[in-house]
Design a binder for these strands. Structure first.
Length: 90
DNA sequence: CATTTGACGCCAA
DNA sequence: TTTGGCGCCAAAT
């Protein structure tokens, strides 16, 4: 298929889609998102995409590391933690 | 077009 | 338990 430019947006598109599907109050790991996106071991790539494509329509702050740590956030880990606690009802 | 970096993950010491 | 290093993938420069 015309997977030329298609594939280029395949990864990003999937990541955005998956992250956007994350319900409020729930947090997912980059590994999980990558896996659901179909790229399993592309945890880094997931963060790279979210980093460059930070969109307010995408709850990228709900995506954390598999260790349970928040990881990072384009707006600052501070805002990320605040949002997570708030969405979790804390 | 090729190289480097990067919001990660997991194993070893 | 904590710190360090290596590996994986895609994007950005």
């Amino acid at each position: 298929m015309e997977a030329r430019a298609r594939r280029k947006v395949f990864f990003k598109d999937k990541v955005f889609e998956v992250v956007r599907k994350i319900p409020k109050g729930e947090t997912k790991t980059y590994k999980e998102v990558a896996s659901l996106a179909g790229f399993g071991g592309a945890a880094r790539a997931v963060g790279a995409v979210l980093r460059t494509n930070y969109d307010l329509a995408i709850p990228c702050h709900r995506v954390i590391k598999s260790d349970g740590t928040l990881g990072g956030y384009n707006r600052g880990p501070n805002a990320k933690r605040a949002l997570l606690e708030k969405e979790n009802g804390l």
